[in-house]
Amino acid sequence: MTIATIDRAPTAVPTELARGRGGGGPAPKRIVVAYGFWIFILSDMIMFAALFAAYAVLRGNTAGGPSGAELFNLRSVFIETMCLLFSSYTCGLGALSAERRRLDFFLIFGALTFVLGAAFLFIEVSEFAHMVEKGAGPSRSGFLSAFFTLVGMHGFHVASGLIALVYLVAQVIANGLRAAVLRRLLCWSLFWHALDIVWVGVFTLVYLMGAS
């Protein structure tokens, strides 16, 4: 597999000295791209922080409606958590396989990541539907508005991640594991791991503290 890419900056210094901090020349493109995407992830975290703050402020305002303790089913939350955690794990293994040019392993781990993420989303959506059915929709109280906004925004991120994963796997199948695709995969795995970190906050603050 010989692929010519135009993004190789000619460097006069050994690259092991290049760390993007002024000494030793430009950092590898892989490092720079991951840094840019990391900034995006952190700004996304700040948006989630605003939603967490709204939930923390409104969690007691049930307006006579059902509270978290009456609505949350910790058993399915635990299953959701495990789905997302294992999905994060297989995503890491997939990224590692791609880095090591093992296309077969990459496709297996990519499929596992997708199935686990989709299972998470399915459980979450059916819980939402169940709550709306019981009359505990987002318009019932301030608590439920904040709950559906926060958890729904996380679910929306997971759904976008699944769509992006299908798109990336299609790129890998069409173009092979070339450098540009590998960098996109690296960014996607950062995104997916970050979603799992947000979920740690969600299940702790919303579900566990709300139910106990």
Partner: peptide
């Protein structure tokens, strides 16, 4: 050198995590 391979991650570290 340019796209250097960095063997920082391993299957083991993900499994420990």
């Amino acid at each position: 050198g340019v796209e250097e391979y960095e063997p920082t991650a391993s299957y083991l570290s993900y499994t420990v995590g």
